[in-house]
Design a protein around this nucleic acid. Structure first.
Lengths: 278, 278
DNA sequence: AACACAAGATTGGATATCAATCAATGACTT
DNA sequence: AAGTCATTGATTGATATCCAATCTTGTGTT
């Protein structure tokens, strides 16, 4: 079992890539420590991990916030992702065996079925997973980790934009990349990878104002004792601290941007939850 | 000014890439907290950062150690580095302007002069720096950070091997890569980058047992002076804490990594500083 | 010698506390 | 009334102390 701060960092990461915690959202130490029922120190260690991963930014004496990358940074992230995947493509076109190609095709097929059956959420997940599988076939764990981090950051970026993708189109890209690579047409495959990501970026109109639809406590609730992802149970709890904290519900104060019109949305607004919790 | 744990993480990183802290070296919380005169918690946060960077590994209930990558991991790191630099090469061959090429040439020239004047240590530093400059010209900060991390890890790897490089050869590679790229012969340049790194890896006979030649206190002493900011502390400074070892550790910039027969334990007798303080 | 067990040391974590800093508020001036 | 400045409150960065769990070590027994 890894450390608690790692567990919490994982949960926060999950919540961020599920778009339950959106860019700019304050990650207060005290608030999180009450949510997870751990000490502030553990929370801080988790936040350090998040910041190292580029998913949070810590401002001295002000606290941690979910990262809010600039357009410039968004481009750089996609550039880096393109570079990595092109490189992996070059490797795979040399070294990948039949089993590998089969796995890729099978994955594309699964996504195709998801699209066909109208399961957009699943299609979205599979669409992202394709890239992960792609890189995993390079059998380079270091590269995998770098790539996974970039993917997480692109997923974060999606919180900032108005999603407007054509899944079928992107799916076709995946399929065609596999085809081209297997036929040894590396150059074309690499160009397609580039176009693929540019297509995504082109849809990026970063409408800079994003405000949280839920408090962190609400956003994180689904991850707290579900253990859906087979991870660690959060805490076997010791006797409560008896110190007058009567109601027990960590009803957090909302940290909303000022010019915020009127989101009193504490009442579980199940809105466009694009994410996929477990 | 960034947090203290960041400062300490930076110093530890520095000490590791200077080969003053060698793989496997125990990084005890209490010991480090006394050395840096901070609390254990700050040290722990620094160690978390190191571990996230791949420079340390934390074993639960056992503590943190300087990372000791396997041969497999070493290969993966170099593979990833090659992939990144090849990708950057492709970008530069498209987009780099005259000023950029000039900067690269100038850098190669500086290293050439260092080699000519017999300043091996400087040549080594410049040789590594070339790769950093190369990637910086891509103007992609995300990519830069990924690359820098990989470079740090390769530098760590050098602690595990018996260094036996032919600097002139590697320098020639740099020069030729610039030439080829500027002439638009991308494919050849990329092949050369690959060969370049393979040349380095080929020299890797990871003689698994590395022994620390100094205690962490001795290894870290040179970095401890001002402690306020930590720009580039190479000033020799005596430890403020008494603690018995009054030796001032005159650290010479020696670059003679001749294999040392294994001493017994951490008996700090010799100070063959193999590192390359900038 | 091999094994079991107790003692010590180290880590992971909790709690309480303090200083520094930032945000918000309110008082005061113009 | 508007604007500026000081006070207050809240949050972070960091420390010290304490505790439980685990690892290491050394010793004693078989």
């Amino acid at each position: 079992m890894s450390s608690r701060s790692q567990t919490i960092a994982d949960i926060l990461t999950r919540a961020i890539i599920d778009h339950r915690l959106v860019p700019g959202c304050k990650l207060g130490e005290r608030e999180l420590s009450e949510i997870f029922d751990v000490s502030r120190i553990v929370v801080r260690q988790a936040l350090i991990r998040l910041a190292d991963d580029g998913l949070a930014q810590i401002e001295r004496n002000r606290g941690a916030f979910v990262a809010k990358p600039s357009m410039q940074e968004a481009m750089e992230i996609y550039d880096a992702l393109t570079l990595v995947e092109q490189g992996v493509a070059a490797q795979l076109s040399d070294r990948l065996g039949p089993a590998g190609w089969a796995e890729l095709r099978q994955h594309v097929e699964r996504q195709r079925q998801a699209v066909a059956s109208g399961n957009d959420a699943l299609a979205d997940v599979l669409g992202q997973e394709f890239h992960t599988v792609f890189v995993r076939l390079s059998r380079n764990k270091v590269m995998q980790e770098i790539h996974a981090q970039l993917v997480r950051r692109t997923t974060l970026l999606r919180s900032l934009i108005t999603a407007d993708f054509d899944y079928c189109n992107l799916l076709d890209d995946h399929s065609r990349v596999v085809d081209l690579l297997e036929k040894g047409r590396l150059k074309q495959a690499m160009d397609l990878i580039d176009t693929h990501h540019r297509t995504v970026v082109r849809g990026y109109i970063m409408d800079r104002e994003v405000f949280p639809e839920m408090t962190p406590a609400e956003a994180l609730a689904p991850y707290l004792d579900g253990k859906a992802d087979g991870a660690t149970p959060i805490a076997p709890r010791k006797p409560a601290k008896s110190s007058g904290n009567g109601d027990g519900t960590a009803h957090a104060h909302v940290h909303l941007p000022k010019q915020d019109p009127a989101p009193k949305s504490r009442a579980s607004a199940k809105k466009t939850n694009r994410g996929l919790p477990a």
